[in-house]
Design a protein around this nucleic acid. Sequence first.
DNA 1: AAAAAGTATGGTACTTTGTGCCATGGATCA
DNA 2: TGATCCATGGCACAAAGTACCATACTTTTT
Lengths: 108, 108
Amino acid sequence: MTEPKTTNRSDALRSAHVVAKDLHAAGAIDKATMRRFDVSCLTPVEDLRPEAIRAIRETAQMSQAIFAMALNVTTALVSKWERGEKKPGGPSLKLLALASRKGIDAIL
Amino acid sequence: MTEPKTTNRSDALRSAHVVAKDLHAAGAIDKATMRRFDVSCLTPVEDLRPEAIRAIRETAQMSQAIFAMALNVTTALVSKWERGEKKPGGPSLKLLALASRKGIDAIL
DNA sequence: AAAAAGTATGGTACTTTGTGCCATGGATCA
DNA sequence: TGATCCATGGCACAAAGTACCATACTTTTT
């Protein structure tokens, strides 16, 4: 079972997705209703190839050491990501996705 | 050795810190100089107590399930964080720090 | 009122990310 | 020629994070 099951994630995803219409009907999204919001608001997180990770870092014009500090990981790990020795996990992928989609400033 | 050594991190920290004066001397921080930047630009990441994590989530008015999706982790993990059964690691702490300091929108 | 769904906890077992440490080599600059 | 930044590499290891299941309380829905 190489591919992780998405039981927990899709549980939440499903429950959150169905309320999109509610938000639409309400007109505006007030604080109280904000407890439920559409998943489409979230920055999409996809798997990243080693080159893609390096591309994000080089676009930001950062060394591995500085980039690692921005993500709060070690430089050794960034090196391993870029060489495919290790693959970034859940929270790391989210950080990388933010940097990729919204720019490095989003995570500084 | 419960407390992690900070060898790698401080290596980078030291090297990055000394160039603060260079930036100051240059007047403005152009793209080329951006390879080196001061660490003070980074959102400070500190350890978070379980209650602090829950506070961040409740301020965002999110269920554990939705909050977990925003961080790209499982709901079970968020529950464990808030009960002190597990402690968020490097990348997770960064995400939580961003949410805490800049607001939940910063990581959506 | 009952059914259904959302919310949170609890535990167990397991994978592998991420860390620490140290050594190496190339590039750049005083 | 030192010194410093940069990136790679490997090895051992703790623990973060995952998957899965059961339970129970609360809210919403029909």
